[in-house]
């Protein structure tokens, strides 16, 4: 029985389960600092998976995906600070819903406006830049470039989550892993369902899909909104962990970082962006302490090389090996 059900699990999910297991048993062997950055890695990995849902699976290249991440972070923080009576659950709901509202708005302009291809990328970039500027300019609400700090902890039932004490941090770490696992499996079933196939079909030939009766704009909008919600949640969980947010979170820096993570990890898989993010952010924490400028130079070179020679990223290389 067990063997049989093990066989039914896809290779991708097996790899994910192994990573999950490693992440779960890691805390006793690590320092507080390491747990903190590990939590950050996993949040970024969730963020990357959400971009891949619209880029890899639906063929919409967004150069402004951080808009959702940052908006999630700001929504959660502002709700916690300005509306503490609402509590953590309201704040988390905010970090999901505010990005969804933006995504709905953008879908109306972009997806239903039939803006496609490169224009889509540019407009999403412009949206992200606009929000970054807005956050900078609207000092009374967002404290502008100074940024928000400290950020109150999340509290669910009697548990508190932030990075202030080891106990709280470990709790937070497990909360993030739980969320990551949930999102992975939601996306797994989402992309392997009939609907996932529809997204692939639309990416492949929108005209044919439309002339078979498929509602292309609707299908794309759902993926876009789901991606926005996931990115928003990742951003929301990021805020109390980092204890500091600034307009940068919404802007070009993170928008393009996440593109690099997904491109290097491998599009069109869930595990690719997950692993790609963790590897790259890990390398960044190591190298940027020693050789800041050179590290980003290397990132640029990696990006160009991957795009030129391994368009399917790390996962592309690995999966070819496995098939051989």
């Amino acid at each position: 029985m067990l063997m049989k059900s093990l066989k039914a699990i896809s290779l991708e999910s097996k790899i994910f389960l192994i990573i999950l297991f490693i992440l779960l048993v890691l805390p006793p062997f690590t320092s507080m600092y390491q747990i903190r950055i590990l939590s950050k890695f996993v949040l970024f990995a969730i963020f990357a998976m959400s971009l891949d849902l619209i880029w890899g699976y639906s063929g919409m290249v967004s150069f402004g995906h951080a808009a959702f991440f940052g908006l999630g972070a700001y929504s959660l923080t502002l709700l916690l600070v300005r509306f503490p009576e609402g509590g953590t659950l309201v704040a988390i709901a905010g970090s999901l819903l505010v990005p969804v509202v933006l995504a709905l708005f953008m879908s109306f302009f972009l997806i239903y406006g039939k803006v496609s291809g490169v224009y889509f990328a540019i407009i999403t970039l412009v949206v992200s830049l606009t929000l970054e500027l807005l956050c900078t300019a609207w000092y009374s609400l967002t404290k502008g470039l100074t940024g928000f700090t400290p950020i109150p902890p999340l509290s669910i039932f009697y548990l508190k989550f932030d990075a202030d004490t080891t106990a709280r941090l470990v709790q937070y770490y497990y909360l993030i892993i739980l969320v990551a696992a949930l999102i992975y499996f939601i996306l797994h079933f989402f992309t392997r369902s009939r609907y996932g196939l529809l997204l692939q079909a639309i990416k492949d030939n929108p005209k044919r899909a439309q002339f078979l009766g498929h509602n292309i704009a609707g299908a794309k909008t759902i993926a876009f909104i789901l991606a926005a919600a996931i990115a928003g949640l990742a951003g929301g969980l990021y805020a109390p962990l980092e204890d500091f947010i600034s307009p940068q979170l919404l802007g070009l820096v993170y928008s393009t970082q996440v593109i690099i993570w997904v491109a290097v990890g491998g599009r069109n898989t869930l595990i690719g962006p997950f692993i790609g993010t963790i590897i790259l952010v890990y390398l960044e924490t190591i190298f940027s302490g020693i050789i800041v400028e050179a590290w980003y130079l290397i990132i640029g070179i990696i990006l160009v090389v991957v795009v030129l020679f391994w368009p399917d990223g790390l996962m592309g290389i690995v999966s070819k090996r496995i098939r051989k």
């Binding site: 990132i299 640029g300 160009v304 795009v307």
Partner: peptide, 11 residues
């Protein structure tokens, strides 16, 4: 091209 030229711009 979009992604590759972004790499170039970083470099």
């Amino acid at each position: 091209t979009l992604v590759a030229t972004w790499g170039i711009s970083i470099i």
